[in-house]
Design a protein around this nucleic acid. Structure first.
Length: 359
DNA sequence: TACAGTAAACGGCTGGAAGC
DNA sequence: GCTTCCAGCCGTTTACTGTA
C-alpha cells in the first residue's frame, strides 16, 4: 500500500472498525467496559489527539507533509518509543521538535536518512521533554541502522526500547494488524478494578501486564482487542484518573465499588441512570431523538463541570485523517487548490442549559 | 489566602538476582 | 539454562505542608 490516505483508511477500517459495533450481549462480565466504551464515543481525550498514531498524523498534516508509508511507520514507531513514562502532551511536543528539525534538512519529515544525519546528542536535545530521554535518544538513533521500518512483531520487539506493549501497538497502528491487547497501566488497572479478569488462584493480578493480557484476550473476541487500549487510556485520562481525584459524579459506570469522590445522587439517578445502559446503537435506534437529548445533557454537564472536550456532530473517535490526507494530497498536487476543508464547529459547544434529572 | 518547597505517585523497559 | 521477580531509571505532576 503506497498511498498514505489508503493506508490510514485501512487502519481505521480493519483495526478499529469494532468501535462502530455494540459489544455483544454475551459479554455480561464486561458491562462496565460497555459503559466506558459508550462514554468514550461521546468524549475526546488526549490520547485521541496526541496518542502515538495521531501524533504523526497531526504533525504531518500540520506541516503539510505527505509521508511515504515507510516513513509514516517509522514515525509511529518513534512516537511509541518516546511515550513510556511520559504524558501524551510531552511525547507530542518532543515528536514535533524532531519533525520541525527534520524539515530543515528533508522535505519529507522524519525518515531513516534523517536519523542517520543526527547525532545522539542532537536527538537527545530535541526530545529532552520526555522521561528517560537519554536512553530513548540512543534507541531512536539506533533505528538508523534499519533498512526499513519493521514489518513484523518479531522484528519490532528486537529493537531496544520496544517491549510487548509497544510492539503490539506498533502492529496495530503502523501495520494494521491486530495481534493482541496493548496492556499499559490503565488497562491493567481497570481489568483488575472491574474484575474482568481473575487469576486461577482467585486473586486478580495487579502487577503483571502479560498475565492480564493473556486473561483478557481469552475472554473477549479478537476484533475488540485493538480498541481496548484506546478506550481505556482515554477513560483513565479523563474520568477515572489515578493521580487526580476521579470524576465519579459524572461517570456512567454503574455499581462501581471504588468510588472516591462524592456522588450527587440526583445526577446518578437522573442523567447518569438514563444513559448508562445505552450503547453505540443509540444512533440507529427508533428512540434516537429521546436518547440524543439525554446524551447531550450529559455531554454539557461533563464539559461545563470539568472542561473535558466532547465529540459533536459526525466526528468519530478516530477523526477523519484519511479524508484530510486525501484533501491535502489534492491540494499539494494542484487539485482543488481553493477547496480547504473546514472542521465543522461543535454546534452546541457553548450552550448553557439547566441540568435536570428528568426530561 | 497565596505562594514556595517537599514528598510521593506515576509509568514501561532493562538488567541483575533469585529460584527452579 | 531458563524463568520469574523486582529495583532502578528519570522527569512530570499532584498533593500536602509550612510560612508569610
Amino acid at each position: 500500500m503506497s498511498n498514505i490516505s489508503q493506508f490510514i483508511q485501512h487502519i481505521n477500517q480493519h483495526v478499529f472498525k469494532s468501535l462502530l459495533e455494540d459489544l455483544p450481549s454475551e459479554y455480561s462480565t464486561f458491562k462496565k467496559y460497555k459503559q466506558i466504551r459508550f462514554m468514550r464515543t461521546l468524549m475526546a481525550s488526549t490520547v485521541d489527539l496526541k496518542g502515538c498514531l495521531n501524533t504523526p498524523l497531526i504533525i504531518n498534516y500540520k506541516y503539510k507533509v505527505i509521508p511515504s508509508v515507510q516513513d509514516f511507520k517509522l514515525q509511529v514507531l518513534i512516537s511509541l518509543m518516546l511515550s513510556p513514562q511520559t504524558k501524551d502532551e510531552m511525547t507530542f511536543d518532543a515528536f514535533e521538535n524532531m519533525f520541525m528539525d527534520s524539515l530543515k534538512l528533508h522535505t519529507r519529515g522524519i525518515s531513516i536518512d534523517y536519523l542517520k544525519s543526527k547525532s545522539f546528542e542532537e536527538i537527545d536535545a530535541l526530545i529532552k521533554k520526555v522521561g528517560f530521554h537519554k536512553r530513548k535518544a540512543k534507541n531512536i538513533k539506533d533505528l538508523c541502522m534499519l533498512t526499513s521500518a519493521p514489518d513484523s512483531y518479531e522484528d519490532v520487539i528486537k529493537i531496544n526500547g520496544v517491549g510487548p506493549k509497544i510492539g503490539l501497538l506498533y502492529m496495530q497502528n503502523a501495520l494494521g494488524q491486530n495481534m493482541g491487547i496493548g496492556v499499559d497501566t490503565h488497562v491493567n488497572r481497570f481489568a483488575s478494578k472491574f474484575e474482568w479478569i481473575k487469576h486461577k488462584s482467585g486473586r486478580t493480578p495487579l502487577k503483571n501486564p502479560e498475565q492480564t493480557r493473556d486473561l483478557l484476550e481469552a475472554s473477549i473476541d479478537k476484533r475488540f482487542w485493538a480498541e481496548m487500549n484506546l478506550i481505556l487510556v482515554g477513560f483513565g485520562q479523563n474520568i477515572c484518573t489515578s493521580t487526580q481525584l476521579p470524576k465519579c459524579d459524572v461517570c456512567l459506570v454503574s455499581n462501581c465499588k471504588d468510588r472516591r469522590t462524592k456522588i450527587d445522587e440526583s445526577l446518578q439517578n437522573g442523567i447518569v441512570k438514563d444513559i448508562e445502559d445505552l450503547d453505540v446503537s443509540y444512533l440507529h435506534s427508533t428512540n434516537h431523538e429521546k436518547n440524543y437529548k439525554k446524551i447531550l445533557a450529559w455531554k454539557i454537564l461533563v464539559q461545563e463541570r470539568y472542561g473535558i472536550e466532547m465529540r459533536y456532530g459526525n466526528e468519530d473517535i478516530l477523526g477523519d485523517w484519511d479524508k484530510k490526507f486525501d484533501n491535502l494530497n489534492k491540494e499539494l498536487y494542484g487539485y482543488n487548490l481553493l477547496q480547504h476543508e473546514k472542521l465543522s464547529e461543535p454546534p452546541l459547544k457553548k450552550v448553557k442549559i439547566e441540568i435536570k434529572s428528568e426530561f
